[in-house]
Computed example of a mutant assay.
Amino acid sequence: MKEFNAKINQLIEWVLIVAMFAIVAVVSWQVFSRFILRSPNSYTEELARFLLMWIGVLGASYAYRTRAHLGLDLFYQKMIPTIRRKCSFLIEFSVLITALSLLVYGGGMLMNLSFALDQRSAALGINMGFIYVALPISGVLITLNCIENIIYFFKQTQEQE
């Protein structure tokens, strides 16, 4: 499972790199066309917004994998090791439940509703379900990483006993 997660997260890393390059290009074109050409494009603002949504949601799952997300570990570092391990498991389990309920289930419901209602974006005219699919994808990625962390936690606990 560790190798599978590593390959998936490497793919997500490349998707994020391409998306960051794309958002810089789109926003640069928007600024150029607005201020230099005096003829702004109608689709660039919406495309930049959608790219930012995907970068934010997929970036959160990538940050969770690499432990780059923000956290206050002042109390965590002062805990004794046995309580710290229990706290780590509780955190991982809480993230797992949150990812499954909010991102996978809730994001999936939002995506399905958008497809069912044929909700389209104003400027680009694409179905909003394609934009909202980032939520369940990110939820599945976070879930896979949580499961890997929980398995590692149990292996580590068994080795210490």
Rank of each mutant, 00 (worst) to 15 (best):
L51M: 03
F50V: 03
N127K: 13
A134D: 10
E92W: 04
I91G: 10
A99G: 03
R34W: 02
I36D: 01
R85N: 12
K155V: 00
G129H: 15
I142F: 10
F153Y: 14
N127P: 04
M109P: 01
A68M: 15
A19K: 05
I150H: 11
V15W: 12
F75G: 03
C87N: 11
F21R: 01
L90M: 06
R65T: 06
L102Y: 09
Q77V: 00
L135H: 07
Y62N: 05
L72R: 13
L141Y: 08
G129N: 12
F21D: 01
V24T: 12
V31R: 12
E13S: 14
G129P: 12
S42T: 04
V15F: 08
T82P: 02
Q156W: 07
S33T: 07
I126Y: 08
P81S: 04
N149I: 01
Y76W: 08
S94K: 10
G108S: 01
I36S: 07
F89T: 08
V27K: 06
M1R: 13
V15D: 02
V18A: 14
R120A: 00
F50Q: 05
V133F: 11
G108E: 00
F32I: 10
C146T: 05
G59R: 14
F93M: 07
S61H: 09
L37D: 04
L144E: 01
M53H: 10
E46N: 06
A68L: 11
C87S: 15
E161D: 09
P81R: 13
I80H: 14
A19N: 11
L74M: 13
L135T: 07
C146L: 05
F35W: 12
T66M: 14
R65Y: 15
E92P: 02
S28G: 06
L110F: 00
S33E: 02
F89R: 15
Q156C: 03
L135C: 01
R49I: 00
